[in-house]
Amino acid sequence: MQTKRSTYRHRWLPYLLLAPQLAITLVFFIWPASQAVKSSFERTDAFGFKTTFVGLSNYARVLADPGYLNALGRTAIFAVSVTVLSMGVALLLAVCVNRVIKSARFYTTLLVWPYAVAPVVAGVLWWFLFNPTIGLLPHLLDWFGINWNHRVSGTQAMILITIAAAWKQISYNFLFFLAGLQSVPHSLIEAAAIDGATPFKRFWTIVFPLLSPTTFFLMIININYVMFDTFGVIDATTAGGPGTATMTLVYKVYTDGVAGLNIGSSSAQSVILMGIVILLTFIQFRYVERRVNY
């Protein structure tokens, strides 16, 4: 790893400078994570007196549990829907803002602020709009003969959390797509225009392929967001229900560990989640490296 051409040498100063961050990292990250790994191999009896080493049996039970596989499937559907919805809308808006030169800044301002809205708040806002008794949208849907009640219908509950989670993420995707669009060389577009390509053809054959690094990067970030940051959205709207229709992996770790106090199973689930994060981080870094050479 690089340093500067010339560096300082000092007996204790660098350690002192690193101490605060290392202390916090060790106490609140490394130690708890290693505890999670440790207790994922153990089982504690019902009274909490005895802890025995049980090998991989927690993992085996988690992976054989239909509830866990259900949560895994729900999370996958949720992640794909939110990613597609929020990235699609964000790309459309970014393309439009990139076209209007004079008012670009104005529109950008009006589109970026939801980034600052807490996931819980996003959940509450959409939950209010979709409230089966007084909500506005169920009334509109009623005209079309759709009976909306996300407290009963699992599909509708899923749609609700997808919209709320995607709504909050649009601003983020929008900013990155806009930055990507602004770095597309103008000469390429002009050349295509001279060749008689229509704006739509130009977009699909030139702009969109050039955006692919941004798109890929955003896909990873969005999956990460859906997996970990949507806890608040779910807790505020459906709390995993009805039944387990909107139970995601993180929500299940929470309900099993905090509400159910099943530490062994919850730890095994945490460790599996860490594995997923490590995989996502790895993919992201591989991609960043490749893009540097791009």
């Binding site: 609140f28 994570a33 970990f228 806890f231 770790v253 905090v258 989640l273 860490m274 994060v277």
Partner: peptide, 18 residues
């Protein structure tokens, strides 16, 4: 390594430490 450990995946042990 902390990049890979968002608080959501280590809720319970971190809670125990705190």
């Amino acid at each position: 390594i902390t990049l890979m450990l968002p608080v959501e995946v280590r809720i319970i042990p971190t809670y125990a430490v705190v």
